[in-house]
Amino acid sequence: MRPRLAVYKFASCDGCQLQVIDVLGRARPHLGELAELLDIEHFLEARSRIGAGPYDVGLVEGSVSTPHDIERIKEIRQQCRFLVTIGACATAGGIQALRNWGQIDDFLSAVYATPAYIDTLATSDPVAAHVKVDFELRGCPIDPGQLASVISAFCVGRKPRLPGYSVCVECKERGTVCVAVAKGIPCLGPVTQAGCGGICPAHDRECFGCYGPDRQEPNLVSLTGFYERHGANRDSLGRLVQSFNAWAPEFRTEHDRLSGDAP
């Protein structure tokens, strides 16, 4: 019997689900035929038919941001034998985790005419803050090739092969001239986990840390210190580490250190 797949959405932009559709829809033929490997039982973005649980593998996009989300993710956890979070929102809280630094009541009164109707958490949380997660696939959005690798590894019962190095390795592999060294652009590549293929530096932009902090002791203090000594503004460095993966522990700590909020 083929494994049964479920895909869920929480607080997110849907971009990672589009990457799932990209893989399923064979938009990249070299990835093979995912839809023939699995039965898609629950995927509201792609089809209206819903097959009953439990499921063998669940993909979760989005962060947990309401009390209702907490209940829902707990149910999903019970329905899925193997739970995989996909994308920066699900693995680190996403860009919406910027609210974690503010006061939730201030946002509510600024945005909503009747805040009393809003039932929300004070923070935007990674899924793993509420339930046990079996595998985290990072990225903003996730990379279709990496997703295919994770799913095929799950289907045949082996470990997925994902990069364990910084974005710099990808830039060097594609021959990109380092934007930090040659142009003085503060770039998060050296402390960011690879996965995107080094897209932004190849287009003359800095790495924004979409794949989260490098898994091996990312030395943010040394990197931002060098940028600061070479003219970068401390506030802008704080904003650089405070984007899609702002609430990832290493980026969060560095932001707070730079802004003087460190405990």
Partner: peptide, 9 residues
């Protein structure tokens, strides 16, 4: 090692 990023460049 306090300065090194282990980035492999």
């Amino acid at each position: 090692a306090d300065r090194c990023l282990s980035c492999a460049n």
